[in-house]
């Protein structure tokens, strides 16, 4: 089945000037993301993931190259149009949950709807639906800051889904969660793809999630490489093999050390 290309990244580079030193977190990145797929951008810390995430979420214009969403260069839009694009098309889930402290859970979830011009009542209705999707509706009137990390992350996902976005971008959404809660969030993300036809972009350094992906983008030292899932799974196997070898090597080191007088 031929899927429509939704996001086309071409020749993307980013440069910073820090203390007279030029940093290039991204160099000539190229990849495309297809409609209604689960994409994982992975790479170790410092690889340029965060920069890629910022560029994809419409917050930071690249030094060179283009990001086309449905054929339109988002960095050619006016500031207001770009803000509207963020509120309307993107749902973003962060590693740490950020909240407007003075507002309750429901109002925080309704936030992107407010930015689209919805009245409080209409926004509350849609926000409630989003909370029901993640099973957090009973916390609607509570303050989000007193909830557990897992609960906060699910509410963060509800906020990302409130406007029924086409794209859900998740930045290490399980980074601060235990496996159980992490899996719940991942399950919800998968659900977004299958049930609500969202295109998912997951940014992570955690290789565990590779099997969830339809498409993988590996970033290392500012360079990107696209992998098919089969290749990725193979890569995962390699990583597991590497890890086993490494564990074995370390065990041998310890054993050798123990035999010394």
């Amino acid at each position: 089945m031929n899927k429509k290309v939704m996001i086309q990244v071409s020749g993307l580079s980013q440069e910073f000037e820090t203390d007279g030193e030029t940093i290039r977190p991204l160099q000539q990145a190229n990849f495309s993301i297809l409609e209604n797929t689960f994409n994982i951008i992975y790479g170790p810390s410092g690889s340029g993931k965060s920069t890629m995430l910022n560029i994809l979420s419409g917050l930071q214009a690249p030094t060179a190259g283009t990001v086309m969403f449905e054929g339109q260069n988002i960095y050619k839009m006016s500031r207001d149009a770009l803000a509207h694009f963020r509120a309307h098309r993107l749902g973003v889930v962060y590693q740490t949950s950020y909240w407007v402290h003075s507002l309750n859970v429901l109002e925080n979830v309704a936030m992107p709807l407010y930015f689209l011009g919805y009245s409080r009542r209409k926004a509350a209705k849609l926000a409630m639906l989003a909370l029901q999707r993640v099973g957090m509706e009973r916390y609607a009137k509570k303050s989000p800051i007193f909830l557990s990390g897992g609960e906060q992350q699910r509410i963060g996902l509800a906020r990302a889904l409130a406007t029924s976005p086409l794209y859900v971008i998740a930045d290490e959404p399980t980074g601060n969660l235990d496996t159980e809660n992490g899996d719940k969030v991942m399950n919800l993300l998968l659900n977004c793809q299958t049930e609500f036809r969202c295109t998912i972009i997951l940014v992570t350094h955690n290789m565990e999630y590779v099997p969830l992906a339809d498409h993988l983008i590996h970033i290392q030292d500012g360079l990107t490489e696209e992998l098919q899932q089969a290749t990725a799974l193979q890569a995962t196997e390699e990583i597991i093999r590497d890890l086993r070898q490494r564990v074995a090597a370390l065990a041998r080191m310890k054993a050798k050390d123990a035999t010394r007088p």
């Binding site: 803000a83 509120a87 973003v92 407007v100």
Partner: peptide, 10 residues
């Protein structure tokens, strides 16, 4: 910053 990231205009 959060609100701007979520789509509020400056």
């Amino acid at each position: 910053g959060l609100m701007v990231a979520l789509g509020a205009r400056n």
